[in-house]
């Protein structure tokens, strides 16, 4: 691993809580690492577990999924589905030999700008420890 290795993180945030929380972090000018790129979805329940695998195939070293706190989902129960699905996915990833430090799930509400910063820092730090990921790389798909 080179000294200045910077992991590439793809994050899926729900529109109502975590994306708003990340916006609040911006409005409050809290600073966090630039390694994270966000894809907005309406609900963490929208995130197909295959997206995580796909991100790892397409060049990500780590993936973060963040939604509303359990019980606070804007769509009532979407984040429960996300939690169940991603729990299974995490087990599967460990089974096939992917370092679980590459995969994170968090609950960040619309008022938790500072928590978002902590989540990003932790995600980036752990992905950095896990090192560059070449496990499932495949040729970039031209959609």
């Amino acid at each position: 691993m080179s000294e200045n290795y910077e992991p590439n993180i793809v994050a899926f945030l729900c529109n109502w809580c975590s994306y708003a929380g990340a916006d609040l972090a911006g409005t409050s000018r809290v600073h966090y690492p630039a390694n994270i790129q966000v894809i907005r979805v309406m609900c963490s329940g929208r995130v197909n577990p295959l997206y995580v695998m796909n991100a790892l195939q397409q060049g990500a070293d780590g993936v973060l999924i963040s939604g509303c706190h359990p019980g606070d989902c804007h769509y009532m129960e979407g984040n429960f589905y996300a939690r169940r699905r991603m729990g299974m996915l995490k087990d599967l990833m460990e089974f096939v030999g992917v370092d679980p430090k590459r995969f994170h799930m968090s609950w960040v509400s619309a008022s938790e700008g500072h928590k978002w910063k902590e989540v990003v820092e932790k995600t980036v730090e752990e992905a950095r420890e896990a090192g560059p990921f070449e496990g499932f790389r495949r040729r970039q798909i031209d959609w």
């Binding site: 590439n8 979805v41 991100a55 397409q58 060049g59 990500a60 959609w143």
Partner: peptide
Amino acid sequence: ILPQIAALG
């Protein structure tokens, strides 16, 4: 969404 993921990599 999948092309978005690919573009970020």
